[in-house]
Design a protein around this nucleic acid. Structure first.
Lengths: 190, 190
DNA sequence: AGGGACATGTAATTAGTTACATGATTGT
DNA sequence: ACAATCATGTAACTAATTACATGTCCCT
């Protein structure tokens, strides 16, 4: 989703500064399917402000730098509703991890094993942190999306655990056989 | 993965033209986790050619335009191996669909239902097409990645089917209750 | 004294997409 | 006649990232 709509989405849940919006995308509830950097968030908030889709009030804090807290306006909410009515763009998954596993047979088994284990550990941590958050207070869409993410991560962990040893074995045996038959096919099979 | 490495990956499986590389990303085995347009593929192939990582030979065809068929060179294979040894960049999932389900309670239930049903139908089609491809002839990494993709899609389909009616019901009842309590929280809960 | 969290913002750069330009052949 | 598939390539554009600039407080 474009950064402007992402900001409107975060602000629809309550007031926030640019810094806090970044955190919501990094660690918060949006971290699993959205991303944005300061270099895109601050200009997006400035534009939303100019379009009167958000209000901004400066906040002086003791022992902390001043911050600008943004609130969504009624027209901002309308803009968010309207975006939600548009057919969603197809998901764009760009995964180096999948690319690597696809070419697993070209990799040394120790590097491959390390990558697979890191992925499992990472996702197990994600699942643990997700289980800890209090969903009771959240609206149904958030709970649903949360459960969908969990289902996805759990399925990936299960598959990786059940199949990684077999993959590693197959590659180890193919790589020793490769010494005898070092031929690549001349035309790609789709 | 950057388009140059993606091209090397496709060419490592056999010779191909720019047009065929595009097809591999659109319909072929890379379609689930990679994307690239002509505007990035053709310049990438030109650069790879200049760096001698691929060879190019013109092919005249009857009743078809000429095509340029690219082959990966030994140094191209080395470059691909080396990229595969680098730690993979974290996955970048940018999903409008997840964003929408997150804000499901802001959407009319009929629009939401239609989006959920389209997603299920789309993924069921993907799974059907994936089941049909002959994996016996493919290397272990490709089989593994294929199974991982299938596991993910099946988990998502299962979750959507098991939870969408409940979500729709919850939203329908909340929306009628909203008429009585029209208050938004003032500060976001992460 | 050095790093990390807090806090905002701009400028340079990158990496891609979309649209355009061209043109034959095949199917409806 | 019109769209789709095959086929390559460039130019304009977009949307983002990264690096830079600035500064405080807190912890080790």
């Amino acid at each position: 989703m474009d950064v402007k709509t992402l900001c409107l989405g975060v602000l629809s849940r309550g007031d926030a500064s640019g810094y806090e919006i970044k955190k919501a995308c990094e660690e918060g509830p949006f971290s699993h399917f959205q991303d944005a950097s300061f270099g895109s968030i601050y200009p997006a908030l400035a534009k939303l402000s100019a379009e009167k889709l958000v209000d901004c009030h400066q906040m002086s804090q003791e022992k902390r730098p001043d911050k600008k807290v943004y609130s969504i306006t009624p027209s901002g909410r309308t803009a968010l509703f309207e975006t939600l009515l548009l057919p969603p763009a197809p998901d764009k998954v760009n995964s180096d991890f999948y690319f690597m596993t696809f070419f697993a047979q070209l990799m040394p088994t120790d590097v491959l094993r390390s990558i697979l284990e890191k992925r499992i550990t990472w996702y197990e941590g994600v699942v643990e942190r997700m289980k800890d958050c209090n969903l009771a207070i959240r609206p149904p869409g958030e709970r649903f999306t949360h459960g969908l993410g969990l289902a996805h991560y759990r399925a990936e962990i299960t598959y990786l655990k059940e199949n990684m040893d077999q993959l590693l074995d197959q590659i180890a045996s193919e790589q020793s056989a490769d010494a005898e038959i070092p031929q690549a096919p001349k035309t790609a099979a789709l």
